[in-house]
Amino acid sequence: MAASRSDDRLPPLVWAALLTAAALMVAPLVWTLLLSLKSNAELVGNSGAALGGPYTLENYGAIFGNSSTMRWLLNSAIVSLGTTAGVLVLASLAGYGFARLDFPFRRSLFVLVLLGLAIPSQAVILPQHQLFATLGLHNSYPGLILPGLIGPFGVFFMTQYMRAIPKELDEAAMLDGASRFTIFWRVILPLTIPAQSTLAVFTFLGSWNDYWWPLISATRSDMYTLTVGLAASQMNYAQTSGLGFLMAQAVFASIPIFIVYIIFQKQIVRAMAGAALK
């Protein structure tokens, strides 16, 4: 990445503060990892035991031994990928419309979309549930994916990004006789790849970690997502008798998403610029 002042070095005091902050940041995660590597029996009544060996992978083995876990993993992947793909398509189209085209009620409609940022999802979840019951969409992939597609942030984000692309590009293409859709598809969209990857990561993350909607919509265990399935398999009072297993599940559920971050790290930071345009 291009640093603005790569030549000057951090003063030692700043370094010390940074490292302290990083330690504070990491300590809980290391703690979780250690707990997940201990046998449940050893942690009973004494979570401090995690600071010393012996460590074991038995908790992870138990996760893989449960055939449902793989099914839930697959469901989570389908729902998250489906939601991500849907959001990219819808938000790009809408963002192009709002940012670069003029049409009646454009401003009012954009404000209507921004309104959505203020709607607490808990406020609409019950009417939403009733609606999906009427449509017969519960316990299905569309039922899990559709509510994820309406987040206004994607549209807001893509609109901001596309606004920054010089108008002259469209005008030149128009002179060549290209249709609006061709311009969108061939000219503008390729320029938004970094923003697409950012939005994809945001959406994927949010969808992967979503809890309430899948909890009340996917009520048959073969449709559970990983979050709901893991919650269902936690026994009552598991915090004392099955702490290691619980933490292993926590680590297991976070790994795929962490990998996504590692892979896209550079694109994310680069494309954040889209949301933070001057």
């Binding site: 549930h129 019951a133 316990n139 909890l215 009520t219 048959r220 398999s233 936690q234």
Partner: peptide
């Protein structure tokens, strides 16, 4: 056929009943 839900599971049960399933 067994369906395991998170304890205590009433929001889900209520949701299922509201969905008439």
């Amino acid at each position: 056929d067994v369906n395991v839900i998170a304890w205590p599971g009433y929001p889900q049960l209520t949701a299922q009943m509201a969905a008439r399933d």
